[in-house]
Nucleic acid binder design. Structure first.
Lengths: 206, 206
DNA sequence: CCGATACTCACCCAATAGGGGGAATTTAAG
DNA sequence: CTTAAATTCCCCCTATTGGGTGAGTATCGG
């Protein structure tokens, strides 16, 4: 029986995953935490075989949680549950010496298979390096191109916006009409499902 | 038996929720979709009692999906699954004539209860300001306090701004006048020597 | 050839942000 | 106590952004 703890701030996600895992006879979810601190508290007194850790959590986020686990040499496998196939996030996680890396759009069977695989000592990192040779735009990389399907022109606009240029300045620089720039920005906001530039930029740097 | 279709781009979320719902004898998940388009396609030929719709989906997002359902007068209850406790998103959903609104940090039992409640004709909209107290994300720590001498209140404002809140929303949340919020923002821009919010946020994440 | 996508430009209109000024209150430190 | 910083609020006004809609062109792949 593999004892598992889950840390994710979205209860429906953690309880849903728990429900999936419980359906497998070899797996047992012994703890569900809403953030990293709860997980650390739990691990202080109880041992588990494996933890599933979300990256974005309030109070204590994923990477910091994992660092604490590693620094205290708590003996358990660490698997990251990520929202995005972001190369940078992935790279940071590798530095943290985790045992697995999974996307939240994996399916249930893959999750179960991966957990068993990792429990047996074989680490597993999900990441298709398809866009690894995507060129030098390091700022807005995979997450934006792949997940949000932004066009090259939109990436160009978004870069200038984040540099603080107004629509008029962007239009001058790119030899475009202000209307065109505005249209691009509106399309970007729609694609990212955000309401304004501030939210867009925070999403960009999350 | 309540027939349910789920639309969410994160398979672990949709399959997890499905697993939760299947555990209840009265509920039956008949379809899991990865985006709005798949859901619309399915509803074209198959009837369900209720759909659970995520807001953030590729190809066809939540609001647009719901609009199509409503315009085609497809007879089913519509429940939105939202990531954020955002008042504006909530307001927009109300305009769409949905039957329910749930956070992804609801727990499993609440989800089940709400679905049954809605199936019986009583709409239910979850919205509490609890999640507004998402802790200070440690992004704006030493660097900003020391280097730019930002006051605690200014840090609070800058955090909410980066979350995409407008001045009016920030004023409501902090029980302040909009004028005060604007004053703080102007002072912040001056202290950081930037011209607008976009430049401020890029400086923040540099 | 057709359809999808990207790119371009435009209009109207409402909401929001920002620049400048002034001023009162509270709080913390010297 | 006295000063400085922080916080609060208001006025003026203009610039910018965002929502919605429509539409013409170009490119690329099936």
């Amino acid at each position: 029986m593999i004892r598992i703890a889950i840390a994710d701030d979205h209860k429906l996600m953690s309880e849903g995953i728990a429900s999936i895992l419980q359906s497998d006879a070899e797996l047992s979810v012994v703890k569900i935490c809403n953030n990293g601190r709860e997980l650390i508290e739990y691990l202080r007194t109880d041992a588990v075989d494996l933890v599933l850790v979300d990256l974005n959590m309030p109070i204590l986020n994923g990477p910091d949680t994992i660092r604490i686990i590693k620094n205290n040499q708590i003996p358990c496998k660490v698997v990251v549950l990520s929202m995005y196939a972001d190369e940078n996030i992935y790279a940071k996680c590798r530095e943290l010496d985790i045992n697995g890396y999974l996307h939240k759009d994996s399916d249930a069977q893959h999750l179960i298979d991966t957990i068993k695989c990792i429990h047996n000592g074989r680490n597993h990192y999900d990441y298709d390096h398809a866009s690894a040779a995507a060129g030098p735009s390091k700022l807005f990389d995979d997450k934006f191109v792949n997940k949000f399907k932004l066009s090259p022109r939109e990436l160009e606009i978004i870069t200038l916006v984040s540099n603080g240029l107004t629509n008029n300045e962007i239009a001058d620089k790119l030899f475009l009409s202000v209307h065109t720039v505005m249209t691009h920005r509106k399309n970007i906001l729609h694609k990212l499902q955000v309401r304004n530039t501030a939210e867009m930029l925070s999403l960009l740097n999350s």
